[in-house]
Design a protein around this nucleic acid. Sequence first.
DNA 1: AACGCGTGGTG
DNA 2: TCACCAAGCGT
Length: 347
Amino acid sequence: MHFQQELISWYSLNKRDLPWRNTNNPYLIWLSEIILQQTRVAQGLPYYERFVEQFPTLSDLAKASETDVLKLWEGLGYYSRGRNLHATAKFIFDNLNGVFPSDYDSLIRLKGIGVYTAAAVSSFSINERQAVVDGNVYRVLSRYFGVFDPIDSTLGKKIFSKLANELISEVDPGLFNQSIMEFGALVCKPKNPDCMNCPVKLGCFAVLNDKIAELPQKSKKLVKKERFLNYFLVQNDDKVLVKQRESGDIWQGLFDFPLIEFETKSIDFTSLVPNVFDDNKIENFKLIKSYRHVLTHQLLNVQFFKAPNINSTFIADNKLIWVSLEELVNLPKPRVVQQFISGYLEI
DNA sequence: AACGCGTGGTG
DNA sequence: TCACCAAGCGT
């Protein structure tokens, strides 16, 4: 049997039963694909269930507020996906008569849909012949065919895309796409691939040449920046000061507390206090809790202080707003802020 | 076109 | 413990 047929027959026997596989509805497939970008099935699955429950159709999602969408997205990360999801739902509702596109060329124009997602949605919904090239496909193809071009280079992406589009079956491209991704996720895994039970091991370059651990190749090295975030919990009766985060940094659209960031750990905290707080001495600020929160590109040292108040200039400059504790619960927040709140305020 | 964007699982 | 990285995309 050919490589393609082996993967397809393996898939028919070993595929997981996942809810987005039981539909041709492009809206539901799109929803699942956006949620699953850079995300494991186990992590995305409960979010998919909740989104389908709360927004069963495109118009339900289009009519929601961005904050409500982000609230449902809370904890999933890469929040631009959630913002673009909502923006695209509104765009289709307003400009495309609420009909979700299912062909590649229409899909690729939409915000949040790139080459992978356009291929996935079109091939899964209408069986369009467009090869998906995701992390699984890079791994499977590089190992099986012995392709050493870095997958994070422009040339490498081109080569793998060409190869995948040559391999994809004429008869059922959607099924092939599903098969190769599922195979990559369950058998041809990044670490400790299950080569013993691999249906195509006899033809695999990496197996035959002992190059499994060296494929796929990557050229870039991840650089992690360390940051020092200091949050101030300012409470007035049952109200607390919060701020919605703006563009140009992490967590856009989510809410957090008044924030002072230090460039380095050694900056003198006390020298900053008179600029920010009215008649408050350092003794009045109590450190409640500190966290080390790890992002892909950043290592965050996050401290939460209880503060008596902050001055009016700081409030005006930073677009802070007062919300009740009840409202605070319903706002979308970064994981580390959510963690702090549930521990400290016990809500 | 290189880089920034979250969170949690894994070995 | 910690680097890696998972159904990528926007700028």
